[in-house]
Every structure is written in structure tokens, then in C-alpha cells.
Amino acid sequence: MAAALLETAGLTKRFGSVAALFEVSLRLDAGETVGVIGPNGAGKTTLFDCILGVLQPDAGSVWFEGTRIDRLPVFRRSLLGIGRTFQRLELFSGMTPREHLLVTERARGAQGALWKDVLGMGLPTPDEKRQAADLLDLVGLTDVADAPVESLSLGRSRLVELARALVGPPKLLLLDEPSSGLDDAERATLVSVLGRLGRTRDVAVVVVEHDLDLVGALVERLVVLDVGRVIADGPVEAVLADTAVRRAYLGVGR
């Protein structure tokens, strides 16, 4: 069997006596789209943090394309092809959306040598500029491409993060509650961008989301976390029909 794109084996993370993740083993193939749902505090964001290396798991391992990555620093994992958005925005304040994308392109190309900068070789290439413009167009931010990112609404800020995570493009995209704070139009943009990704199967997407309608429209597979454990994993319809899931998440069927 070919190596999975992403695999976690027995991932456990404790905060004090609370297990935010307990022996979470997941497998994700290239181009797959997965929704992760669960009540607040179920460990969804912790899962992302452990995959990308923001947090160090207490036990278990993370594999990406057959390589073990749980000892690598965050930026190395990112350069392997993992893009991420944050539930609480982590934008580069003081920069414009366009600059966000350009600096990400430069970082992904690992071209940041000081001597090149001093010789004036550290500027974005026309190719990088064009790709940045294309991405801005894709997420509908062209009109504010050169405005400071602080002046954007929360929804549009999330789209900046989405565009930033799409630079490369990545092989795996981790989206942490991408739709919270979006208005209808921004949400439509989000759905169409992600829908496109799902159809082309270029990028595997893991999306943490509370909005089940949105999740249902975007993903083919659903993973349910509750108090750090995977309580269901399978096709969307099957999982939503599961009694345990309904009890844990939807608060019905007690």
C-alpha cells in the first residue's frame, strides 16, 4: 500500500490532567477532503497544532508522505507542503494582503539569503507577483490587495489567511474554522474555492468547522472528536446518522 499523505498514530496530548487528544490515529490520502467536527474543547485545534508542530504531542507520531515529521520544527513541516489557517487570526499586521502572499512565496522558495538581499536579488520575481495576483483574484481580495490588513473585516482577513495557506500550493491544507465571521458573499467565495480544490483533488483538505451545512457541502468524509477521542470516522451521511455522534455533538438522541 502506498504511503498515506498524512498519518497520525496514537497521537496523545495532555494539558495537565486533561487529555486534549487521546490516541488519535487518522489516515488521509492525497486529495481527500475531510471535515473534523466536535464540541468546543474536543481537541480539534490541538490536533492541527500537533500535526504542524505548534504543540509537541506527549505520545504518538505524525507521518507525512511516509516520513516521520513529529520532531521537525514548524517551518520545515510547512515547507513539506502543509498550509494552515488559524482559528484566531495570525496575520502579519502592518503588511498588505499582497505582501502576505509575496513573502510566503519567497519563504516557500527558501530564498532568504542575506547576501542576495544586499545585492538586490531578494525582490519578488514577476512570476511570484503574477501568482500572488492570481491568488488574490481567486479569493476575491483584489480590490484590497494593497490596503493594510488591519483595515479588513474579520471575514476578509480569514480569506487572506486562506490565500496565504494556498501559496505553493500545499499538498495538505488545514483550515481551522474558516467560515466563522464571514458574511454571505465571503462564505460563497470560501465554498467555491474549497469546492474547486475538492474537485481537482490537487490538495487534501482537513477542515475544522461547526457549520455542518458548509462541511456537508465541502467534504466527503467526516471525523468526529469528543474529549480528545475519535468517536466516528467515515462518509458524511453515515457519520451524521451515528447515534454516538448525535449525542456528543448535536445534543439529540439522549
Binding site: L52, V54, P73, V74, F75, S78, L79, G83, R84, F86, E90, L91, F92, V103, T104, A107, R108, A110, G112, R164, A165, V167
Partner: peptide
């Protein structure tokens, strides 16, 4: 955090 997440060392 954002910097590390986009691949900046």
C-alpha cells in the same frame, strides 16, 4: 506563529 506556518525559519 503565522511566520512559522508559512515556512519561515
Amino acid at each position: 506563529r503565522g511566520s512559522a506556518a508559512v515556512g519561515i525559519d
